[in-house]
Design a protein around this nucleic acid. Structure first.
Lengths: 181, 181
DNA sequence: CGATCTACCTAACGTTTGTTAGGCGAGTGC
DNA sequence: GCACTCGCCTAACAAACGTTAGGTAGATCG
């Protein structure tokens, strides 16, 4: 049922998704939702939290696997993990990207706070991978990379010709070396 | 009044914005909106169209100014123009980024169609600037660049220390040369 | 067996939503 | 000075919204 809610939030945004739609999609009636969640906002909040958990977990498994690999490989693994969280692990992570702006102020603020934890993981990683670049510049590069990664959900088709591995390779390579041949 | 509507759409998304809010923000009453627009969807549609017009116009002025400059300068000018459309020319362009997912299907489909025109301008530009790169790769690079540019509205503060010119330079440089020092 | 709990339902509540019909005053053209 | 348009208002409409109260079937447990 959390899954059903997340999918609808992703497709239509927070406020355009009604509890009756969620209920129907989950095979129950609208009023029954309140047996599990005290309000629509809280349900949304749980969906977003779940999305962050997925991302953080993906990050840590990528970190474990590649902890002593060279820098480009480690970066690639984490880019792949982030894309995997978006496209392979349910709609929870995606909800963060698509329904962020349609979320109520309180939920939005809370989501930002929790997301900071994940972003700090990335900051630490990048500072570790590129010690020769100063942190302020690196923070900017990270934001640009995040923008590129998250907006893939607007155009990337997991069932298309391009695989997630290939996409991760392209993004990583562009981040490292730019577009010049 | 279009401006008031656009600002509210940007802040809360499409369906969380009520006609009464828009009316109040524009200094009129809700019913009066229908003297100008036949429906809420149509009003939103007009806002989005206006946003595309702003972007296309910014693109063409940048093209006129730098038509015989070297490739990196031309790219920089267009990146700067795109960022200018987002941050300096009202909320119409921004509405495209923030309220896209909360838009009704029909409006969304129409917006995509009109946006294709703008994206084709960019495709042509990049193919012109980088003839040595094959078009399929370049299309990917463009999508990545667009993602990075559009998501700046989530974190960039026009009133902060970093200027738009500097931001444009950073993004352009990362696109061309990557993050390596 | 009886008590309790869980997961759900029905039916309604007050509010808000987009939308509409009809009216009113200021300006314009003839 | 009369007709007409334009921009806006008031007042209401039906529908849909989040939410709540009270009830019911089935499982759990002592």
């Amino acid at each position: 049922m959390l899954r059903a809610a997340a999918e609808l939030f992703v497709a239509h945004g927070y406020s355009a998704t009604t509890l009756r739609q969620i209920a129907e999609s989950a095979g129950i009636k609208a009023g029954s939702i309140y047996h599990h969640f005290d309000s629509k906002e809280l349900l949304f909040s749980v969906v977003l939290d779940e999305g962050i958990d997925v991302m953080v977990q993906a990050f840590h498994t990528a970190a474990d696997v590649t902890s002593d690999a060279p820098a480009p490989s480690r970066l690639l693994a984490h880019v792949r993990a982030h894309l995997g969280a978006l496209f392979e692990n349910g709609p929870f992570t995606t909800a963060h990207v698509t329904s962020f702006f349609s979320a109520p102020h309180t939920v939005r603020a809370q989501a930002v706070t929790r997301r900071d934890g994940y972003e700090n993981l990335w900051s630490a990683l990048l500072n570790d991978l590129f010690p020769q670049i100063n942190r302020k510049d690196l923070a900017l590069h990270r934001l640009i990379l995040f923008g590129a990664l998250n907006s893939t959900i607007e155009w990337f088709d997991p069932a298309g010709n391009l695989t997630l591995d290939q996409l991760a390779a392209v993004v990583t390579n562009q981040f490292l070396n730019g577009v010049q041949p």
